[in-house]
């Protein structure tokens, strides 16, 4: 795999990829988390501005998935602060739901609802969480299905789609809630090699529209093309952070150098 292999070869339109200087999307201050006795995230400090595209890399077990799962509180942190769109995540369920409404998430295993059609998957949350009328929700859903280029699958069930199609549906499902931030948790790791590109294409076009994104991914080509920052984690800590070019050409930390030498050949 080279750095460019799996990403798209087309030129990226950077005209809308602007990073806000003043608006903070996510702020994590002195955050710690334990799984039982295991200290999985250690003193995490991270500030993400609106419009930033951040790729989080690191060896398995380094805590990168746990970190982004803390941002919509699928995991609870025990110490420190996480502030998303100005709302601090606490045990107050109302605030948690408030944050989740504005933060979309795409999972490694898609997690589509297998008993609902694609269209129902897309309209469930807009109808019941946002209170949008069914017709309008379906129109929006079709718009996003066209965007991910599978409108013809609207009435099928998730099990009838390929992995790549399912993941695109999952992205469309998040977009239907018009989120301000998107979290991607290894969105291409469970896909057949031939299907990675179609998902990355959708993610790139999202980035081109200026979406704030945090992606845990091993797609270094994507990181190089789209990210404005790469964060490297090991043993529950952020040990390196840099712009993609510098990150790949001149890694500082020994662990980063080892990691890059393992995945780029």
């Amino acid at each position: 795999m080279t750095t460019e292999a799996t990403a798209t070869s087309r030129d990226i339109d950077r005209s809308h990829m602007t990073v806000s200087q003043t608006d903070v999307a996510v702020e994590i201050i002195g955050m710690n988390k334990w799984f039982g006795d295991f200290h999985v995230l250690r003193d995490i400090n991270l500030k993400v501005m609106k419009g930033e595209r951040i790729v989080i890399a690191g060896p398995s077990g380094s805590g990168k998935s746990t970190l982004i799962r803390c941002i919509n509180r699928l995991e609870e942190h025990q110490q420190g602060q996480i502030i998303v769109n100005g709302t601090e995540l606490t045990s107050d369920l109302k605030r948690v739901d408030e944050v989740r409404r504005e933060v979309g998430m795409v999972f490694q295993h898609f997690n589509l609802f297998p008993h609902l059609t694609i269209l129902q998957n897309l309209t469930l949350a807009p109808i019941w969480v946002r209170g949008i009328a069914k017709d309008e929700a379906e129109q929006t859903a079709m718009k996003y299905l066209e965007r991910v280029r599978i409108p013809e699958q609207a009435l099928k069930f998730p099990g009838q789609l390929s992995g790549g199609q399912q993941q695109r549906v999952a992205i469309a499902r998040s977009l239907c809630m018009s989120p301000q931030i998107m979290l991607f948790d290894e969105p291409t790791s469970a896909l057949d090699p031939e299907m990675v590109k179609e998902v990355l294409e959708v993610m790139i076009s999202l980035a081109e529209e200026g979406m704030t994104m945090l992606c845990v991914t091993h797609e270094m080509g994507f990181a190089r093309q789209v990210a404005n920052r790469v964060i490297f984690m090991d043993q529950g800590q952020i040990i390196e952070e840099n712009e993609p070019d510098a990150f790949f050409s001149n890694p500082q930390h020994e662990r980063t150098k080892l990691f890059l030498s393992q995945i780029l050949h």
Partner: peptide, 30 residues
């Protein structure tokens, strides 16, 4: 029901009873 189903519901902002009623119970009862 895989944990991912609960999580997908939660990440979309669905509340407890909505998650159970629309996502988990229809599958579990089936």
């Amino acid at each position: 029901i895989p944990r991912g189903q609960y999580e997908a519901g939660a990440s979309l902002g669905l509340g407890y009873w909505q998650r159970m009623g629309f996502i988990v119970l229809p599958q579990a009862l089936k």
